[in-house]
């Protein structure tokens, strides 16, 4: 069986650079830090509750491995953990971030994700995907009230893209080359 990370890749495509990874401990610390800050910051900065730091981490980690299953699992674990910190049913963020992780990892097979600009744009795009799936799940599947505000979503999309532009290069400093 062929490795999953090369599934669907065009033989004419330019070979991607050797992926560089985070230390497993650093990966875990990054995920936990994102979840902690997600509940910590709104206590001091109320507008920080509009941010989705776990989403940024999912995008970042999923784009590193260039492995679809790992990206999907990263999204699943972080999403379910985020669900555990909310009062909503478990699975809402799990599903959305599973899909985002899958999509990011799949896309990283075709697009060079080491470019800050590309990752920033993709982060903004996947924020919109995340929001769309979230609205569908909460409003459509669970039938609960959810405020759909495209203008605010677009603004937050830009904010997350900007954050990715700043944060991802900082996180790249702790990456190491795959052995």
């Amino acid at each position: 069986m062929m490795p999953s990370r090369v599934v669907g890749r065009s033989p004419l495509a330019k070979p991607l650079r050797q992926p560089t990874l985070l230390h497993p401990g650093a990966t875990l610390a990054l995920a936990i830090s994102a979840l902690s800050l997600q509940v910590f910051l709104p206590a001091y900065i109320p507008s920080a509750r509009l941010l989705d730091l776990p989403l940024l981490v999912v995008v970042y980690l999923a784009s590193l491995r260039r492995h679809v299953l790992i990206g999907m699992l990263v999204g699943l674990v972080i999403g379910v953990a985020q669900d555990g910190l909310t009062h909503g049913p478990i699975g809402i963020f799990g599903i959305t971030k599973t899909i985002v992780g899958y999509a990011v990892a799949s896309l990283s097979l075709y697009v060079e994700m080491d470019y800050p600009g590309a990752r920033s744009v993709l982060t903004g795009f996947f924020f919109l995907v995340h929001q769309t799936v979230f609205w569908l799940l909460v409003g459509g599947l669970l039938g609960r009230h959810v405020s759909v505000d495209p203008a605010r979503a677009l603004m937050l999309c830009a904010v997350h893209a900007g954050l990715a532009l700043v944060l991802f290069p900082a996180l790249d400093r702790s990456r190491r080359t795959t052995p």
Partner: peptide, 18 residues
Amino acid sequence: YYNTAALILAVGLQLVLL
């Protein structure tokens, strides 16, 4: 369709959980 199946499985399980 290995990855797609995994995604469907993961999402499906979570939908069942929901």
